[in-house]
């Protein structure tokens, strides 16, 4: 009987000691209130976040850019005009030609805005870059002149270039065929020589649309798209004509230089004619190589994306007009 009491007391002790009440769950210690949205935030939400699931970061976030660079965020007032230009020229154009859901399906998840130049210590500048198809950093937001067509195109062409990479990462283009067009002339030293005109002349004569296109075949492809979508058909044709003209001019100039100071007018005339004739095939070849690349670009857009790039080129040009003051 005595033992029963002992057991009872012990059991009661257990129940009492284990009768522990957890504190009730209270509100989070973290600030979970929805941030107050400014008119800029609301505009970006309505025009980018909700329809396209693209987050536009305009307030400084050190994790989004290279800390070793001296960069800074844009003026608050410049955010909406810049992003309106991007939307009108890039998103609206693709949607108009490729279908209303085109950009919704393939898009970067984040656009990061930087106010000024991304100036390298050697004086060159980087216009933008894309990371793994997820985010695009856009520089020079504060430097857009909306009364100047070239200035607006200069800003948006970064998006056209980087978006091409994102499209390529989603659906491959025929890289094997593309890189066989100018296989030997890709170089990591694309930025040499320092003189921009000289650099362009070399790249053009080798069958590249820009100097930067020489870096590798994916950049070459993106530069082709960027050039097509940053110019009207007429302007694009003029660029190719100018490439021919400059190749011949440079050949003539070199021939005259080779004559030396004692050359007569007749010597110069003969040398000019000879250089023109001999440089013509080189000029034709250079433009032909660029046209071959253009054909692969057009084929990629048509077959893989169901977009007529020449129609897209026309729509982009029309939409540029909409944002020019």
């Amino acid at each position: 009987m005595k033992n029963i009491y002992i057991y009872l007391i012990s059991a009661l002790s257990i129940f009492t000691s284990c009768d522990y009440q957890e504190d009730p769950i209270t509100d989070s210690n973290l600030d979970t209130t929805t941030p107050e949205l400014s008119t800029t935030d609301v505009w970006l939400r309505d025009n980018y976040a909700i329809p396209y699931n693209i987050d536009v970061t305009y307030q400084w976030d050190e994790g989004r850019v290279d800390l070793n660079r001296f960069l800074f965020p844009p003026f608050l007032d410049n955010v909406v005009p810049a992003m309106n230009a991007v939307k009108t020229i890039w998103i609206d154009s693709y949607n108009q030609v490729g279908g209303v859901d085109f950009v919704r399906k393939v898009a970067p998840r984040e656009l990061v805005l930087v106010g000024g130049f991304n100036l390298n210590e050697d004086g060159t500048r980087t216009l933008g870059f894309a990371e793994g198809g997820k985010n695009i950093v856009l520089f020079e937001v504060d430097l857009i002149d909306f009364s100047n067509r070239a200035s607006v195109i200069e800003f948006v062409k970064t998006v056209q270039h980087e978006y091409t990479h994102i499209l390529n990462q989603t659906i491959r283009f025929d890289e094997e065929a593309f890189q066989q067009i100018t296989p030997a002339d890709y170089t990591a030293q694309w930025f040499n020589p320092a003189d921009t005109q000289e650099r362009f002349d070399i790249a053009n004569s080798l069958g590249f649309i820009t100097d930067y296109a020489r870096l590798n075949h994916t950049e070459d492809f993106a530069e082709m798209v960027e050039t097509l979508l940053s110019n009207t058909a007429t302007e694009y044709a003029a660029i190719l004509d100018n490439i021919k003209t400059r190749i011949i001019q440079n050949a003539v100039s070199q021939a005259i230089t080779n004559l030396g100071p004692g050359a007569t007018a007749e010597d110069i005339a003969i040398a000019t004619n000879a250089a023109t004739v001999t440089a013509q095939p080189e000029a034709d070849r250079a433009v032909n190589l660029i046209r071959q690349k253009e054909a692969i670009v057009a084929d990629y857009y048509a077959r893989q994306l169901n977009i007529d790039i020449y129609e897209l080129q026309k729509v982009v040009a029309e939409n540029v007009d909409k944002v020019i003051n």
């Binding site: 307030q59 001296f70 960069l71 965020p73 106010g115 130049f117 991304n118």
Partner: peptide, 17 residues
């Protein structure tokens, strides 16, 4: 403390200035 949009302070951090 971050000054998250541009003002005169950011001119010190402008690589082009």
């Amino acid at each position: 403390l971050t000054f998250t949009t541009r003002n005169v302070l950011h001119e010190l951090s402008d690589g082009a200035n």
